[in-house]
Design a protein around this nucleic acid. Sequence first.
DNA 1: TGACATTATTATCTCTCTAATACTAATTCG
DNA 2: CGAATTAGTATTAGAGAGATAATAATGTCA
Lengths: 210, 210
Amino acid sequence: MDVVLFTARDGALHVLLVATGSPTPRDRWTLPSGAIRRGESIDDTALRIARDALGTAPTHLDQAGMRGGARRTAQPVVTVAYSGLAPVGTPARAGAAWLPLSEAGALAIRDRDEIDRSIAAIRARIDHQPIAFRLLPDVFTLSELQAVYEILLGRPLHKASFRRSLHAAAIVEATDEWRTERRGRPAQLFRYAPPRRRRHRRGVRFDLLG
Amino acid sequence: MDVVLFTARDGALHVLLVATGSPTPRDRWTLPSGAIRRGESIDDTALRIARDALGTAPTHLDQAGMRGGARRTAQPVVTVAYSGLAPVGTPARAGAAWLPLSEAGALAIRDRDEIDRSIAAIRARIDHQPIAFRLLPDVFTLSELQAVYEILLGRPLHKASFRRSLHAAAIVEATDEWRTERRGRPAQLFRYAPPRRRRHRRGVRFDLLG
DNA sequence: TGACATTATTATCTCTCTAATACTAATTCG
DNA sequence: CGAATTAGTATTAGAGAGATAATAATGTCA
């Protein structure tokens, strides 16, 4: 089992890798992985591997896909991949490191494929699960939230439209705190408020096919 | 490995089951399943099981999830689930049968869970993959297409809006054939035309969260 | 201190998209 | 022929999205 953990840093997605001590450069850093132990569900296994590599529990963890079979000589083996998230600012445990996705070319092909598939799985779920909020601490500013969405989607978003639809869906609740960064007006802090009921009346989106 | 195959019939989704000959009623019909053979990828295995149960190849086949582990005494065993689609009117092979989802309560709990997860996986992909077209024959009327979408989504759709966005996305091409059912005006037949490029400019959908 | 840069937040307008309603078109049934 | 039935289109009012700009609150620096 492999676990692909993402976080957001410096305006880009990063993935967690662990050092192996292997002499070949391409295998020096790999995705956290491990085998299923007795008495453990596969969800348990993924959580254990993620905890070991991260030092703390991820804020999101989900199946991303599986590969396997096709070995002519030995018993077929399947590998399941989980993908997870850690909030902005989560440090990597000693022996692990956050690698920006732009530098994933230095990894083994197997790991790169796994990462690509995990990103695709996360992007596919971004509208249906609170992915972006799992990449943020408990309270956050709306600019931070928008930045995370822009990282995940890989495209800029319109600020006014972003906030309008955010408030229309009533998916964040304001706290009475403000945070001031280096410059500019302080931003109000918000908290994720899971929606009570969702409107379902909407047409079909054919433009996403293909 | 289990394979969950769906088709549309009589205005409802149906799932393919195979007879086992078991004396217990709850196990008399189960999902098609089998083991991974040597030299076979897991995609190959799923396709083989689907073919054996259906008599023909499904028009769609994809990973749906994985369960397993949690056995204290023996080696952990994992079960891989695939979900697939067959066009309207596809007959079941001898020894297999299409069961409407409303009657899935008669199945084993394990199979019911598998089916529920497969439906969720299909509904999650309906906007991103041409699921509905895989449930139809090569040519179809727009009313048939809309009926399939309504079955998949479980809610009625607005006819004019459905056709407007369909034509705006240029995702179907008209043939020069018409088909007349029992009553009413004949309907023009259409064919699925995979989209060339998709526009991506759109805001974020917060109303789907939860 | 005061002008200016920087960031946050809101307002207004326009354009597009959506859905409700109603309409026209073509066929079968009696 | 006329009613019923199914296919497809037109019109229109409302909601949503993006551009632009206005307002607000802070830090920076001369």
